[in-house]
């Protein structure tokens, strides 16, 4: 930014817009660090129990609907693309296209949640809910798996994909807010930090799912085909 010209978007404690943006980005990356460790605890827990009860994890995993998991993976990657295109449009100052891309991202996040709803409700109908009445068909137990140990897999499945789902819901809220301030004309080529920062968050949610998909859904494929 040229000196002498003070942008209306520049807070007084920053040198220029570039420094302001990089400070925001640094804060966002630090937040994502806490998110890595937040999810990391669950991944570590998963690693431990998968090592302990390997057959149970194969049984539980193979009982999940791989087609729906695959669909959701594609949906989330596509939503990452539309989010990246929203950032691009905001940088170019294309207000209409920014709004469109943000709405598409929200729509895809909605599709993800609807698919999750059907997945979970099917499991609930079959009694696959960790707790006193947990049920799992005996014929689907592989190797040394027991109903009790498969329950551990499902506890982790619900915790990990549930925590991820909460992040998707929060994503819809903040992207909706972005859409609102963009409609109000508060996003310009000069100042689009909010779009970029929410973009970082949304891509991070995508990354978590990239790891969750093979860990939760694909364990039993090489056994059962």
């Amino acid at each position: 930014m040229s000196h002498g010209h003070k942008s209306e978007f520049l807070a007084h404690h920053f040198e220029d817009l570039e420094q302001q943006k990089e400070s925001a980005a640094l804060g966002m990356w630090l937040f994502l660090c806490t998110e890595v460790l937040f999810f990391g605890g669950l991944f570590c827990c998963y690693a431990y129990y998968k090592y302990r009860f390997f057959d149970a994890f194969i049984s539980g995993s193979h009982h999940l609907d791989i087609k729906l998991g695959l669909l959701n993976t594609a949906v989330l990657i596509t939503s990452s693309l539309t989010m990246a295109l929203a950032v691009h449009a905001a940088q170019k100052g294309a207000r209409g296209r920014t709004s469109l891309m943000l709405l598409l991202t929200i729509a895809l996040a909605g599709v993800f949640l609807v698919v999750k709803y059907f997945e979970w409700s099917t499991k609930f109908h079959h009694g696959i809910i960790p707790g006193h009445n947990f049920q799992f068909p005996a014929e689907d137990l592989y190797g040394g798996a027991t109903v009790k140990t498969v329950e551990i897999f499902y506890s982790l499945y619900y915790c990990m994909s549930g925590l991820h789902g909460i992040h998707v819901i929060l994503g819809i809220v903040v992207i909706g807010w972005l859409w609102w301030i963009n409609q109000k004309g508060r996003i310009t080529p000069e100042y689009n930090v909010p779009v970029e920062m929410v973009g970082l968050y949304w891509h991070f949610v995508d990354i978590i799912w990239i790891f969750l998909f093979p860990l939760l859904y694909l364990l039993g494929l090489h056994v059962h085909g």
Binding site: L26, L30, C33, L37
Partner: peptide, 9 residues
């Protein structure tokens, strides 16, 4: 900064 968290994990 980001990979410091990946490293700790």
């Amino acid at each position: 900064v980001f990979f410091s968290s990946a490293y700790m994990l």
